[in-house]
Design a protein around this nucleic acid. Structure first.
Length: 468
RNA sequence: GGUGUGGUACCCAAGUGGCUUAAGGGGAAAGUCUGCAAAACUUUUAUUCGACAGUUCGAAUCUGUCCCACACCUCCA
């Protein structure tokens, strides 16, 4: 039984899809006005794990992710500049070039992290008509009003507005730290359609029944999920920051227009805790996957790191912790490589043990995606002396469908081919010194090679060289 | 000011009333092996879960008080 923590009920619930054996899943993707940082990727990774666990359970998932390329304003109070337009202006590019550039980078990092692409990407600018239709739908049902700068949703008309975030509207008013547009009827009202400023020509703007303008940020997800997955579907996910505003407003729009329940299960991934070095795309201070690569980490080191914490808990990011993950992952890889080169084959005698491991693993991942516990099961199997190498690989490959650490495709040749001839020559010299019992010289050579970044170790067959 | 979350070994991090006198990874230490190392293998590394009370046959897990961090109500995945 698969259990998932539903933000709506704040509790773990058994996952029961609308259509048996199938699931519709939508996740809020990137706003492509800048690079995605490693915090963003923690969320995309969580969604990847969710997708993999659903599929591991034999559920046929239709997975949609949006790309926000318009309408996301600098302030969620529907004020300030459009993030895309602002960034384009700064870089002297068109918004379309900008979108293409950062989307491409996002795809690259996604692939490097072994994150499975969705079945469909929906780009906000490709669904302008659907968004306008939805605003019209809300207008016809009387949920909207007009201000000098756009069409707004009147949240006071919904009895259960804010149910996802358990918003305390009165408390919000008292605690408001900023002033909000005086034209808004309620503090929680939000823009559905923004009119282009009269004195400014936007790069992205469209005709609409209300005048030339662009869609509000929230409407895209309501319109696009409706277009692909229908009025009522199974899972919607994103980062925790989306609970109080973005997802709250999506629910309001969708349920007001469609007149039925929008999404059954809302799942949210917690933030990566950067300690004092808080990452914020708006300040331009953040760590990207490329930063990690430049520092000598592999993208999958980061994936391994993410697997060590539960998605609903903040995870502390430090380079010390990343080093630990890198070491752990290297150990795992070297064990797997050793198993692959072994000729022990599966025996039927241990079928029961293998099955027990898989059952245990399934219990962990189905308990609200408990990856740390699932990883513990993996290590237990890896170190289990009652299993031979063939049996262990059987288990490891099976688990890696969820972990996504690329263990099945690991190839020892990859590492060997990187060794320069100079280093190989030195290693051969050392073997010669050893054969003459000149251990002093042998140790000197090993030290020299170590300084050059390689490690020589002896084995029965001779020596092996490893990049440090 | 309001709201919420969390404090588990040297680090990361599970566990949320008895299966646990607390998983797993990293790190560290010892042994086997080795010319010496490395790897591998074996073993060790929290009688204790922020502090103090309380509930209970029984608590890291529930309650209360206090201390400390962080997050959100500005932008954020």
């Amino acid at each position: 039984m698969l259990k998932l923590f539903n933000t709506l009920s704040r509790s773990k619930e058994e996952f029961i899809p609308v259509s048996p054996g199938k699931a519709g899943m939508y996740s809020c993707g990137p706003t492509v006005y800048n690079y995605q940082h490693i915090g963003n990727f923690r969320t995309f990774f969580f969604e990847d794990i969710l997708l993999r666990v659903l599929r591991y359970n034999g559920i046929e998932v239709k997975y949609v992710m949006n790309i926000t390329d318009v309408g996301h304003l600098v302030s969620d109070q529907d004020e300030g500049e459009d993030k895309m337009e602002k960034s384009a202006k700064q870089l002297g590019k068109s918004v379309f070039e900008l979108s293409e550039f950062y989307t491409g980078f996002f795809f690259r990092d996604r692939d490097l992290l072994n994150i499975i692409p969705p079945d469909i990407y929906t780009k906000a600018t490709d669904y302008i008509k659907e968004q306008i239709d939805m605003v019209k739908c809300l207008e016809e049902k009387g949920f909207t009003y007009k201000t000098s700068d756009g069409i707004y949703f009147d949240t006071s008309l919904l009895k259960d507005y804010g149910k996802l975030a358990k918003l305390d509207i009165e408390g919000l008013k008292e605690g408001a730290r900023i002033e909000f547009s005086t034209e808004k009827k309620n503090i929680t009202d939000f823009a559905l359609w923004k009119l282009s400023p009269e004195n400014e020509k936007r790069q992205m703007e469209w005709e609409s029944p209300w005048g030339i303008g662009f869609p509000g940020w929230h409407i895209e997800c309501s319109a696009m999920s409706k277009a692909i997955l229908g009025n009522h579907f199974d899972i919607h996910c994103g980062g925790v920051d989306h609970i109080p505003i973005h997802h709250t407003n999506e629910i309001a729009q969708s349920e007001a227009c469609n007149g039925e329940k929008f999404v059954n299960y809302w799942l949210h991934g917690e933030f990566l805790d950067m300690g004092n070095e808080k990452m914020s795309k708006s300040t331009g201070r953040f760590i990207t996957l490329q930063t990690l690569i430049d520092k000598g980490y592999s993208p999958l080191d980061y994936r391994f790191f993410l697997l060590t914490a539960h998605y609903r808990r903040k995870q502390k990011f430090t380079f010390e912790a990343l080093d630990a993950a890198k070491n752990g992952y290297n150990n795992l890889k070297s064990r797997v490589l050793n198993m692959k080169s072994s000729d022990e084959k599966s025996r039927d005698a241990s079928a029961q043990i293998i099955s027990d491991y898989k059952i245990s693993f399934t219990e962990k991942i189905n308990d609200d995606l408990n990856m740390p516990e699932a990883m513990a099961v993996l290590w237990e199997a890896v170190k289990d002396n009652s299993l031979n190498d063939g049996e262990k690989l059987d288990i490891i490959y099976n688990f890696d469908k969820v972990f996504g650490l690329g263990l099945e495709s690991l190839n020892s040749d990859d590492e060997k081919s990187e060794i320069p001839d100079e280093i190989k020559k030195l290693a051969e010299n050392r073997t010669e010194a050893k054969s003459q019992k000149d251990f002093k010289k042998a140790d000197e050579i090993r030290e020299l090679v170590k300084q050059k970044g390689y490690d020589i170790s002896d084995s029965k067959e001779g020596f092996t060289i490893r990049k440090i």
